[in-house]
Every structure is written in C-alpha cells, then in structure tokens.
Amino acid sequence: MPLPPRTALEAIYEVVMATIQRAEPALTELGLTMSTTYALWAIDPDEPPPAMKVVAQRLRCTSSSLTFTSNRLVELGYITRTECPTNRRTRVLALTPPGRAAREAALNALDKACPLLRLSDGERAGLLDVLTRALAEAE
C-alpha cells in the first residue's frame, strides 16, 4: 500500500501508477506494455504520420528506445514504419487500422482506470487547467 502523498508531485505519481496498475490487464490483452501504449498515444490518427524524431520528442525518449518500441508495434501489426515521402533519410510511423483500434482501446482502458474519475467534471476541468498552466510555465 502506498504512503499517502505529501506533495502534488507525489499525488500525480500515485494517480499515474494506480491508473497503469488498473489498466494493465486490458493493455496486456492488446499485447501492449506502457511503453508501447505511450508510443501509440503519441501518434495522433488525425494528423499526418509523424517522423520518428517527432514521436521520440513527444515521448521524451531516445531514438534507439523508440526504435525498440516501434519494432514491437510493427510486429503486432499496429504501426508501419516507412520512408518519409519528402525526406528519404527520415522514417515515419503510421497507425494501421488494427493500430487505430488498439490505440482507442488502450486510451479508453486508461481513462476508465484513472482514479480522477471520482472527481466531478468541474474538478477535473479545474485540475486540467492548473496542470496545463504549470506545464506551460515550465517550458
């Protein structure tokens, strides 16, 4: 049992860890780990396929870590990794139809598992506002 959080950072950590723990069975059914889930999350299906460098920046990881993670997603049939049509030296990651479905299922599982669902809509909106401002000020 975790200790009660004493700081906002500890509380954020506990929310994330509880969410991951509760969502893990659903993610496992999809063949996903948190690393592969994060990678799917970083590929927005409503945008053009991003370059691997862009996805690595979104995930705050190295290119080699993303290569390892993307290899697994390619094996699962969730993404393709192809040459960028405008720059042959760059690789882009695109969701496949099964990848879009897995991404949606994984994000739904995380949403349902999140302890923040206990808060009202207004409380969650306020929390989002505070965290968004904190992140904007950090950059």
Rank of each mutant, 00 (worst) to 15 (best):
V130C: 00
Y38I: 00
R58M: 08
R72V: 02
R124V: 11
P85C: 05
G31N: 03
Y13C: 09
A101S: 12
S65T: 13
T37L: 09
A26K: 13
P115Q: 04
P50R: 01
C114M: 07
L76P: 00
W41L: 13
P49Y: 07
M52S: 12
A8L: 14
Q57G: 10
L95V: 11
A134K: 01
L30I: 08
Y38Q: 14
G99V: 07
R22V: 04
G99R: 00
L59A: 01
V92F: 05
L116I: 07
R124A: 08
D129I: 02
R72P: 00
L127W: 00
T80M: 06
S35W: 02
A113H: 03
T19H: 03
L128Q: 11
T33N: 06
T132I: 01
T80V: 12
S65F: 03
C61R: 10
R124H: 02
A26G: 04
P98A: 08
T36A: 09
L32P: 09
R88Q: 13
A134C: 09
L127N: 06
A18Q: 13
W41Q: 13
L59Y: 01
Y78G: 06
L116A: 13
R60E: 14
A23G: 06
R81M: 10
M52K: 06
P2Q: 09
M34F: 13
V16I: 13
V15L: 13
L66M: 10
E29H: 07
R124Q: 12
A94G: 12
L110C: 09
L135N: 02
P2I: 00
T82V: 08
T132E: 05
D121I: 04
D129E: 11
P2G: 09
P45L: 05
L32I: 07
L3Q: 12
L116D: 02
R58A: 12
L127Q: 10
M1Q: 14
M1S: 15
T80C: 04
P25G: 05
I43N: 08
P48D: 14
Q21H: 08
R6D: 06
L76H: 02
A101G: 04
L107Y: 05
L95F: 11
R103N: 11
T67P: 00
C84N: 15
E75P: 01
A18I: 01
L135F: 08
M34V: 13
T67R: 08
P25I: 07
P45E: 15
P48M: 04
A101M: 09
K112Y: 02
E24H: 03
D44H: 01
L40W: 09
A113Q: 08
G99T: 05
N87S: 12
G77N: 02
N108L: 12
Y13W: 08
E47W: 00
T36F: 11
S120R: 03
P5C: 10
E104C: 08
V130R: 02
K53N: 13
P49I: 11
A105I: 05
R58G: 11
